[in-house]
Design a protein around this nucleic acid. Structure first.
Length: 822
DNA sequence: TGGTGCACTAAAT
DNA sequence: TAGTGCACCA
């Protein structure tokens, strides 16, 4: 989000710099920037509830690149929702649900390409996903922190305190937060970033360059006011006011109050009532948002609140409520969910990142301090080629013959499915890919060379072999990663290339260490040795309960799971308190960050001791959508009058023809003209039998043929070959994609899932119609009874009842309109 | 004509 | 989510 047009306006002070220029510095990184990009590579898995850690690999690659250039990253995660942005979150959540519904529908029809498109729009980065990255960061001793609320404020605080010297992000908001050095557009190929320094602001001038705004002579306060006036995450702009208008008017009228007065007098634009009040609250978010102080180990305001600053209950809640220090610390460490404040759930306990003893990798151009004999490359060439040239398996670890436990061939359908790491693409959406299929089968049946297993999937013996080393990550000591769950360190380089010649890196098979791995950790006790040799990917990503063909049974002995479904297979469906084995690895690692782990909080002790969360993780937020019902009631802007909701959500939908039909085989049959889709249908059909079997095994209560309670969590967004999906039943909502339970009335019906507008119809103001039909006034009334704040002016627009104070409603309309039409 | 906002696309692998 | 191109409007 950020400030629309700001980066463009600051183009002339953007300086592309090599990463090496920041060598020796600690740079704070907005983790969600990476994660949001990374989820694109595994959208289907995430949207359908399958375990994956591809996004972790993506982020860790960048961590290592930074370290390779001598930059010590300080990863900052977003925390709980801020009241000021609650409406934004609700809107996004609604849209994600809609996209999941469409994706499931396409998947049920075998139209996997379209399904994937929907899934990419549906996935969100959840705290539980962030925790997967945290596990990897812990394992490699990378500094990190989970902000109590917004990462932006936390990033700004770290820089303000001198803990970091720059901030790497893609969000222009950081400039509004007052950060001095903000780095954008990390180019991992060119190894550069685009730097914007606050000190250069005053050189921005239309006369001096092509910028359309002038910041000459402006203070930080004026810059912030301009940004807020132009529209920010905390406050939509007055319709018709963008960055240039805001800049020009603020320059002329000096203060936001004068600007607003001028606009009102002019009469051409409609200023929402209470705008100025909201403006000052937004300003407080930029100035005084609560952040975690890693040294004091408690929440503090980003900036000290001056005595003359107006401060009341509303302002206090807007900037994020204070938390009990113990809870705040647990959140900061990732041990507590920053939204629910319950123990962090490990959604992928099979992902157990580990690191090896790391050796310094010299910066490009410098000789590498180790032997590279026999590789046909000089030290210099290795150094210049960089660490990425060494991706691949590690032949160091003694290979083991393949066994059924490593590669599982599932029969029962026309095609044999290879599961495990070797299976490569594992999603239902990709199963239709016959090329992949044949490749997998070839791998399964082919004779492997001697090296048949990865260094990353070593046995427990492998791990215990390497001891006596201390993990002392230093700048320029990268650990490498190639593919999902596979991490390589510089130690592996020697044999890497030779191995790659003999073995396709993707041919590694097996479920890794699995249970024995975790048990080994238990057995190892508190050695001085902090890291095991070899990074382990214990299990390949798989769904726990989806009818996903390549999903193997989870080892029953996996200690980190500890729960079994009625059929004897472990779903891991119930929350697994963090830190699991990965966290254990962290505790055994010399602490590099300033906030050592504080252990695992069990139960609700801390929850009870902590202030009540600002927002209930339940239907209350979703009900906020009902405010849209009031659209136009008291808003006089002509721009909105034309957007009155139409009676039916279908009348406008420009959906593809198939969307309006029953997603039956007949509908799919209409795709016969398309050979590709025809093939998809055929493969999907063949897959159905196997899929149903897996589904029964993983997600159904065998006694009733219904989803078991333990499976509901993951089956909430499942795609089923039969077309059934949990979206038809909000009570079975997936916890990550449906973080906030929806009331029955707001849940899309089964039929509505096929009625969801698509393409252009989903954009723009017409989208309001769809939401309109999903809410009732009853919900509004019930919602208003839930909220106890006496003053409505401090409430999030999204949580405001229909009969709320008019000025607030107007504000809500604007916000809803702005957000939903984006 | 400039500014705003919408539509569309790429993104990762 | 950011960037770009285009249409609309004052």
């Amino acid at each position: 989000m950020g400030i629309s047009g700001l980066l463009v306006a600051l183009k002339t002070i953007q300086v592309t710099k090599p990463l090496s220029e920041f060598s020796g510095q600690t740079v704070a990184v907005d983790a969600y920037v990476w994660l949001h990009k990374a989820v694109y590579s595994c959208a289907t898995e995430l949207a359908t509830g399958q375990a994956t850690s591809k996004y972790v690999t993506y982020a860790m690659d960048r961590v290592r690149i930074l370290r390779h250039h001598g930059i010590e990253p300080y990863i900052v995660f977003d925390g709980g929702p801020l009241r000021a942005k609650q409406g934004t979150e609700n809107e996004r959540k609604q849209r994600r649900e809609d996209h999941v519904a469409r994706g499931n529908m396409f998947a049920a029809q075998g139209r996997h390409n379209q399904a994937r498109e929907c899934y990419t729009k549906a996935v969100d980065v959840t705290p539980q996903m962030a925790f997967q990255l945290i596990k990897a960061l812990r394992a490699e001793g990378v500094k990190y922190i989970v902000a109590p609320y917004e990462a932006d404020a936390q990033l700004a605080f770290l820089e303000k305190e001198g803990i970091v010297s720059a901030i790497l992000t893609e969000d222009s908001d950081l400039l509004v937060f007052g950060c001095k050095n903000v780095l954008f557009k990390l180019d991992t190929n060119a190894r550069t970033v685009v730097s914007i320094a606050k000190k250069d602001f005053t050189s921005v001038s239309p006369s001096a360059d092509s910028s359309s705004i002038s910041l000459v002579g402006w203070s930080e306060k004026q810059f912030r006011e301009m940004a807020i006036l132009s529209g920010c995450d905390y406050l939509p702009s007055i319709p018709g006011v963008g960055l240039k208008t805001a800049c020009g008017m603020l320059r002329r009228w000096k203060t936001p109050e004068q600007v607003v007065r001028s606009i009102m007098l002019e009469g051409k634009k409609s200023v929402p009532k209470g705008y100025l009040q909201q403006f000052r609250l937004a300003e407080k978010c930029f100035l005084y948002q609560r952040v975690y102080h890693p040294k004091l180990e408690q929440l503090v305001h980003l900036n000290e609140i001056p005595n003359e600053e107006e401060w009341d209950e509303i302002a206090d809640s807007y900037v994020g409520r204070d938390l009990d220090p113990t809870l705040a610390k647990a959140v900061a460490l990732g041990d507590k969910d920053p939204v629910s404040y319950s123990a962090m759930e490990d959604i992928n306990p099979g992902f157990v990142p580990r690191t090896r003893v790391l050796q310094d990798l010299p910066l490009p151009g410098k000789p590498i301090n180790r032997s590279l004999k026999g590789k046909g490359k000089t030290r210099d060439t290795v150094a210049s080629e960089g660490i990425l040239s060494f991706f691949g398996p590690n032949p160091k670890i003694p290979q083991m013959p393949k066994s059924p436990t490593k590669t599982k061939v599932v029969t029962g359908s026309k095609s044999k499915m290879v599961v495990g790491k070797q299976s490569g693409k594992r999603t239902l959406a990709d199963i239709h890919d016959q090329d992949s299929q044949s490749k997998k089968q070839k791998r399964t049946t082919s004779t492997k060379p001697a090296f048949t297993r990865s260094k990353f999937f070593g046995s427990s013996e492998d791990h215990t072999q390497v001891t006596g080393s201390t993990f002392t990550p230093t700048p320029g000591s990268p650990c490498l990663a190639d593919k999902e769950n596979e991490y390589i360190t510089i130690d592996d380089i020697d044999e890497e290339e030779a191995f790659e010649e003999a073995e396709d890196g993707d041919s590694m098979v097996g479920q890794g260490r699995g249970s024995s791995d975790a048990q080994d950790l238990e057995d190892e006790g508190d050695h001085e040795v902090e890291q095991e040799d070899g990074y382990i990917s214990p299990t390949p990503s798989r769904s726990r309960d989806t009818p996903e063909l390549s999903s193997p049974p989870r080892p029953r002995t996996a200690p980190q799971l500890g729960r079994e479904s009625p059929d004897g297979l472990d779903f891991g469906a119930e929350p697994v308190s963090s830190p699991p084995s990965g966290a254990r690895s962290y505790r055994r690692t010399p602490v590099r960050h300033t906030t050592p782990p504080i252990g695992n909080f069990a139960g609700n002790v801390l929850i009870e001791a902590s202030p009540e969360p600002e927002a209930e993780p339940s239907g209350t937020r979703v009900d906020a959508l009902d405010l849209r019902n009031s659209f136009g009631d008291d808003f006089t802007g002509t721009e909105f009058s034309e957007d009155e909701p139409t009676p039916t959500p279908l009348s406008f939908s420009p959906s593809p023809p198939d969307l309006d039909r029953d997603p039956s085989p007949l509908a799919a049959g209409e795709e016969l003209d398309d050979p590709e889709e025809q093939e998809e249908q055929a493969v999907a059909s063949r897959s159905a039998a196997v899929a149903a079997g897996w589904r029964n095994m993983w997600s159904l209560d065998p006694s009733r043929g219904q989803p078991s309670s333990a499976s509901l969590r993951r089956s909430g967004t499942n795609v089923t070959p039969t077309g059934r999906h949990r979206l038809a039943d909000p009570s079975k909502a997936h916890p990550y994609l449906y973080s906030y339970a929806r009331s029955p009335n707001t849940a899309p019906s089964k039929s509505s899932s096929s009625d969801i507008p698509t393409g252009k119809g989903l954009r723009g103001r017409r989208s309001l119609v769809f939401v309109e039909t999903k809410t009732t006034k009853t919900e509004l009334n019930s919602e208003s009874s839930v909220e106890s704040l006496t003053s409505m002016s401090g409430r999030t627009s999204a949580m405001r009842p229909r009969d709320a104070e008019p000025d607030v409603l107007t504000r809500a309309h604007l916000e809803k309109f702005r957000l939903f039409t984006r």
